[in-house]
Computed example of a mutant assay.
Amino acid sequence: MTRYVVQRVLLGVVQVVLVMAGMFFLTEALPGDAAVTIAGDNPDPAVIAALREKLGLNESAWHRLVEWLANALHGDFGQSLVGPRSVTDLIATAAAPTVLLAGLTLALLVPLSVGLGVLAAHREGGRLDRIITSSTLGLYSAPEFAMAILLVTVFAVKLAWFPPTAVGTSLTSNPAVLVLPVFVLLLRPICSLSRLIRAGMVDAQRSEYVRHVRRAGLSPVRVRLAHALPNAVAPSVQQLARTVDWLVGGVIVIEAIFVVPGLGTALADAVAARDLPVIQGLAVVLAATTVLVNLTADVAARILAPAAEAGR
């Protein structure tokens, strides 16, 4: 296990460095540069030349890449081109709402998905199984933005049960503002995870291993939860990892609809303002998050079902 973890960590480091280098050269390929952006709409050539000298833009791209990578390894992504804030401080501020939304969603997602999957698999083909399967399939097919707009229209505008957006309020001081975004974020992941767990439970309950445990005289509940469930959950860990990655880095639409000042909103604002240091910093954070989440998922799957993982 130790050797496997070390190999995955080294591979993850290489992946993050390649993403950082790729992001740097992609932004280098864009027309204009940071000096032109800072100079404004009516740039003075002398001012632009001075800014280029100050920012080190006259150095070669490779020299600036090495310098940027060295600074990034120490958590320094430079200064934002819009305002006097550092990129690290801006990302840290924007990450708090996104992490809060993702954390609440995950805290509800795991138990609800496991519970629905186990219930559906308890009596395969029964009424409850058909209800859960058809409901999750229907909800999964609905786009998040459409569900978000529908929920805002009904529960925020018509019924006034929840705030429609997070404008003018704090997510922690007014928890009601989190209800609709978290519900929308839960819809598709809970459908996919519960169906995967149901399929895994059905396969596990038919396996020779579980049949042997039943012959040993264990109670049906213990057979399902202590023996069938770990093997059923293992294939869903990778899907959970993809869900976490999506929650942290792909909630731009949800944050835009509910005006949540998270990483998605920060990325959209940075793209609109051509704030390249912020875009680069966010790309590094999202890449590192993806690598870390997938590493954790692979290790967890190997622990839950070592025989299945070893055979891959």
Rank of each mutant, 00 (worst) to 15 (best):
V5I: 15
R8L: 11
V13Q: 06
V16Y: 05
V19M: 11
V19C: 08
T37M: 14
I38H: 07
G40D: 07
I48P: 07
L51A: 10
K54G: 05
K54D: 15
L57T: 05
N58C: 00
E59C: 01
A61I: 11
H63Y: 06
L65C: 01
L69Q: 13
L73W: 14
H74M: 14
D89F: 06
A92H: 08
A94P: 04
T98I: 03
V99A: 14
A102V: 09
L109D: 00
T133S: 15
T133E: 12
S134W: 14
L137G: 15
G138S: 14
A142P: 03
P143R: 07
A148M: 12
V154N: 04
W161M: 10
F162L: 03
G168L: 02
T169I: 14
T169C: 02
T172G: 00
L186Q: 11
P189L: 01
C191Y: 01
L193H: 02
S194M: 02
R195C: 03
R195K: 06
I197N: 02
M201K: 13
V202N: 12
V202F: 13
D203Y: 10
Q205E: 15
R206I: 06
V210K: 03
R211P: 01
H212S: 07
R214L: 05
G217C: 10
P220I: 04
V221M: 10
R222V: 09
R224H: 04
L225H: 02
L225F: 08
A234T: 04
S236K: 13
R242C: 01
G249D: 05
E255L: 04
A256P: 03
G262R: 12
T265V: 09
L267C: 00
A270N: 05
A270L: 03
V271F: 04
A272K: 12
D275A: 00
G281M: 02
T290G: 14
V293L: 12
D298T: 06
L304T: 07
A308C: 08
A310E: 06
